[in-house]
Design a protein around this nucleic acid. Structure first.
Lengths: 139, 139, 139, 139
DNA sequence: GTGGTCTAGACCACC
DNA sequence: GTGGTCTAGACCACG
């Protein structure tokens, strides 16, 4: 796969959450890199385009990019935008990728416990949601 | 079941999270009420006791209690502490309680999608974590 | 009328009262919104400015704003301050606005009754005070 | 008029208010003395009776009585209850009694101003409420 | 004993 | 610049 210019539409945010926008972006980019959806040498959409697409302040996007740059995940190419660093590699081992959602699963567990929900119920509900999600993406 | 004086140990917080402590408490109390672990007319542990037990500032606890009071979930009984309002009822229907974790499940789904994880994997991982949790609570 | 940045001087508090400062502010803002003096989309003066202007602790102002936010009357615009929610509408009907002081009038009535004051006297006194107030504001 | 044993029903409180109960009682007794409804040498109803009648904690009543005692308005007669001090005299001059509600009127004025209500309207509303009150007490 | 209010000040998060 | 969170401590109000 050769270097690509990614479109602004690859990112989604939810404004209703208390989780800050720049952090939603950072975590999202991390995951998409881990999964190989975003590859080394890809050029990210410009701050301005993403901001316009999401309807947020450009500084918010810039902050997310800058923090990823300071981690060595992105590289600033003057006049050309942000590129994914060559050293960054996707996590091919599914088992390792799975570990990345452990925190979310632990939080879920705690909530289920406090709600006195049965494991079976929660798991069934989750699989239902997975099915729905899959169907709607196939349409 | 008659009114009880609840102990300070019913609440847990996690300091590692970015979620503010007072908000963790609010959500936790909401869930415990929904599950019937905390019942109408129960008296919550005092602000000072909870603060001492969790090692945080009393005002932090007070803020959680006050916000729940302004929502009508708790009632202040002057000089006697906070009580769960009589109008508040547990959610007996498991299906309805299940709905309360839908947001967490949706967030999980989004993350899994971005990580390109298979539904089966995530579900298996979750059920594993459930089993571990159950075992450790049985010890 | 377009959105405005309101000045810190729109609020007054009285320290002589037992009514907490944050509550005085809340009720005052409610009334000024009802009267249309403060409009949807207006930006309130910053917590720090109001605090400096009134000579109180910023947290006291922040508490008032936060509570109004949790009621849906104000909206927090991250990094930009608090704005009056669009859904909030002034009460154009004078009759309805009049209803908002009914509680104060009822309290007055009760006091007058206990003091065995004649209605005429109280009303005359009140109209006198209104006249004085009007004159002093015209100076 | 000779000394009387007053009944517990002479006091009313409103629990919905933020004004503390003991303070409501104090102000009420002050006003009833000023108006001559309660006279020197009258014996107030017992703490226990008032508490039972109002459905509040006896300590609350006791606190109100004690504070009035420390002001010299009431006198504790061992085994016989609280009596209104002989030195206390009603305010016969209506004009002076009128002054006692000035604070409430000033608060009303401020609220009316913030609500941009016309003086005429407020006064008319007040007189209406006076009429209603009079009618209902005549029934 | 209960909770509430306020202060002073530190630090964080967001834009 | 904006508001939010938390702390430590004082003091008040209520029962």
């Amino acid at each position: 796969m050769s270097e690509r210019q990614l479109t602004p539409t690859i990112f989604q945010i939810s404004t209703g959450t208390s989780e800050p926008i720049y952090r939603q972006l950072i975590e999202q980019i991390r995951r998409q890199i881990a999964a190989g959806q975003i590859c080394p040498a890809d050029t990210l959409p410009s701050v301005r385009d993403v901001a316009a697409n999401l309807g947020v302040n450009p500084m918010t996007i810039s902050k997310a990019y800058s923090l990823l740059e300071s981690e060595g995940i992105l590289e600033r190419h003057r006049g050309l935008g942000m590129r994914v660093a060559m050293g960054v590699i996707p996590i091919n081992d599914q088992q390792q990728r799975l570990e990345l959602i452990r925190p979310s699963l632990m939080k879920l567990l705690e909530e289920a416990k406090q709600l006195e929900l049965e494991a079976d119920q929660v798991i069934f509900f989750l699989s239902e949601l997975f099915s729905q999600s899959k169907r709607s993406s196939n349409e």
